[in-house]
Amino acid sequence: MIENMTEIAISQLLSETQKMKYEDYRFVTASCVSLGDDGCDVIYHFDKDLEMKHLKLRVGKGEELPSVSKIYFCALLVENEMKELFGINITDIAVDYGGHMLLSDEELESPMAKQQITIVEKKGAK
């Protein structure tokens, strides 16, 4: 089990992250686990003097998640990645790639999310 993990609600995210910043923690990254229809688990990893702290929250399907990139600028890449690969609706990212950081137009939407994939044939593609 992971030490120093705190479970929080979405509404607490910005204040908790601000607290981390205030306590001089370094933002390492965020990890995301798809839970199918239940949405996603998002875990934010912080580090100070090689000791880690984690914030864990659950985002339901279609729920909005505020971006922490205003507090930690370096979170922008990982938030764009989560938005793209898992389809989490992260709002107000400092630089929003609009779902085209890693993927191109032709690829499936949010490929890492565990969901039923239906391929709809586009009209006029042939």
Binding site: V28, T29, S31, H45, F73, C74, L76, L77, V78
Partner: peptide, 9 residues
């Protein structure tokens, strides 16, 4: 999470 990912910002 690879190191370059952290160094691009």
């Amino acid at each position: 999470r690879t190191p370059t990912f952290a160094n691009i910002p």
